[in-house]
Structures are given as C-alpha cells and as structure tokens.
C-alpha cells in the first residue's frame, strides 16, 4: 500500500490517529510513560470499560442507546457474588451472564415491541436495576471469593493480564459479528434506515432484542472481571460507566443518530480515555482537571468527525 492509501485508511479511523498523537505527546513529557509495564497497566485499566463499550457500539450503530449498562453491571456482580459465597465459581459466573443477558433482553423487548425510545427505556431500567442491587445487598458490599475466581481479574498468562486477554477475545468476536455476519449487516441497516430494513424483510424486533441482550451480556462479563479483581462486589459498582462507554463509542467515530461506527474505533476510543487518565496521573495533574481534559478531547473528536 502506498502512502496515499494509508493516509486515506487512517482518515476513516481518526481515533487511531488521536491515540498515536496522545501517546507521542505523553512520551515526550514523561519518561515513565512509554514502558511495557505501563502499557500493560493501561490496557488492564481499560479492559472493563472497553468490553462494555463494545456492546454499546452495536447498540449505538443500531440507532439506540443503553444507559442501563452500569446498573446491569452492578446487579450481575452482586447476584454472582452471593452465588460465589455459596461455593461454586462456575455457577456464579453463569448466573452473572444470565442476569446480564436477561436484563439486556428486557431492554430489547421493551424497545422493540413497546416502540418506546431506547433512551427512556434504559433510563428506567437503569434506575430499577440499581435499586434492585441496593435491595439485594442491603447496601453492603459482598467480599471474599475463591482464588480460582480471583484469577479472572488478577491472573496473567505469559505476562498479559487475563482481563486484557478477555477484552481482546471479545473484541475479536464483536468485530467479526459487525463485519461478517447477518447480525452485523442488519445492525447497520436498522440504524441507517429502520423502515427500509423492515421493508427489506429484516426482522427488526428480533435483531434489536439480540443487540440489547449482547450489551447486557458484555456488561456482566465486565462485572465478573472487576469483581474478581477487587475480590469484592459493591452495590455502587458501575456508576457512570454508561457515559464512559458512550464516550468511547463516540470517540471511535460512531454517530448517535445510528448507522455509523466501528468496533476498532471504539477500541481506540476506550484506549484514548485510558491513556489520558494514565498520562495525566503520571504528570501529576490534579484529578480535578482530568474530567475537563476528557471532555475537551471528546469535543475535539466530534468536531473532527464532522469535518469528515
């Protein structure tokens, strides 16, 4: 490929360019930044947000939004934790996945069959799931799990943390779904023009339910990782995660209007958020400023996106 071709490809993924730019920026300012251990650290921190954001990507491409991911995250964490306390790791993990998928499907069914705006539906389920989490735990954290479970969050294989491996595994699956399956094609079509998709014979309702179910399922996977890492499930888990996920997806070039977006973009969107956190910490920038920096980066990204 010649230079022009590469440039053109890069223009399609401004998040990659942004990521590289920010990496170079911090590399100049901090000598501790550009080290393997620091990068592994960043990827581990990002893995949880990224997994949620992958699900959010499909939802946003389909023209919807899922505000409930943070609460679904918390509810699946605490329900799993109580099962883990009973002894079985495998059962606990399965229960978490089940809770996530179930809540996601409920979102999907109400959005698809009830014909209610996804923003409203998931705003409501976000509140309901959070409330259920608090009722279930009575507001107390659940802690202390078997070491085989903790391995999911703390272990590593050949120096790569397990959460990072899981993240890349899920990235590969969602990438495949979005590019090479009917589900992927239909997701873009529903977001691009729902009426046309329906008239073309796409079972819009069915695919919407699958998309929201996947979003819930991925939230649960992220919850498993965090619970394992902290050796604790807390009822306040996941607060504000929906915004981080949406930010990553938008940084990755998706449009909230639907029909546009890529999983690769989202991966780099999440990495940009993570690297900003990490770099600003290394530079000893007060956490009070960090949110503002993130906000500015998001605005710049969206402005660049509009230029395209």
């Amino acid at each position: 490929m010649n230079w022009k071709g590469i440039l053109k490809k890069l223009k399609e993924y401004p998040a990659i360019v942004g990521f590289v730019g920010i990496v170079i920026f911090f590399a100049f300012l901090s000598d501790r930044f550009l080290t393997l251990s620091n990068f592994i650290n960043v990827f581990r921190q990002v893995s949880i947000q990224a997994i949620i954001a992958f699900g959010m990507t499909l939802v946003i491409i389909s023209g919807g939004i899922d505000l409930s991911v943070g609460s679904v995250f918390a509810l699946s964490a605490v329900v799993m934790a109580s099962v883990l306390k009973g002894g079985s790791v495998l059962l606990g993990v399965l229960v978490a996945l089940l809770v996530g998928a179930l809540l996601g499907s409920i979102n999907g069914v109400i959005v698809a069959k009830g014909k209610i705006q996804p923003f409203i539906v998931t705003l409501a389920t976000m509140a309901i799931a959070r409330s259920l989490t608090l009722v279930f735990t009575q507001g107390m954290p659940i802690t202390g799990f078997p070491s085989s479970f903790r391995y999911i969050g703390r272990g590593d294989i050949l120096g790569i943390p397990v959460p990072v491996i899981i993240m890349f595994g899920i990235f590969a699956i969602i990438f495949y779904i979005s590019m090479f399956t009917k589900l992927g094609l239909y997701t873009y079509a529903i977001g691009g023009n729902e009426t046309a998709a329906k008239l073309s014979g796409v079972k819009v309702d069915k695919y919407k339910i699958i998309i929201y179910m996947l979003s819930g399922l991925l939230s649960a996977i992220a919850a498993i990782i965090l619970t394992a890492r902290l050796n604790s499930a807390q009822p306040t888990f996941g607060t504000g995660y929906e915004l981080d996920a949406i930010a990553a997806v938008v940084l990755g070039g998706a449009s909230l209007a639907g029909g546009k977006g890529t999983v690769i973009g989202t991966l780099f969107g999440a990495l940009i958020m993570g690297i900003l956190n990490n770099g600003l910490n290394l530079l000893n920038v007060s956490p009070f400023y960090q949110q503002a920096v993130k906000g500015i980066v998001i605005l710049i990204a969206v402005l660049i996106e509009r230029e395209n």
Partner: peptide, 29 residues
Amino acid sequence: KKMGLVLEMDVMRNIILQNTDEVSRFGKI
C-alpha cells in the same frame, strides 16, 4: 430514500440486505 434504501450503506450492502439468505450460512455472510 425513506423506505427503500439505507442511504449510508453502499450499493452492494443495499442489494444484499434483502437477499441475505442467498449469501449467508449460519448467520455468516
């Protein structure tokens, strides 16, 4: 524009959209 086509998608995907069964097996296109 409103009912027939997904304007943001390319010509190939618009044609395939209504004919996925012809090009897909087990959900893979």
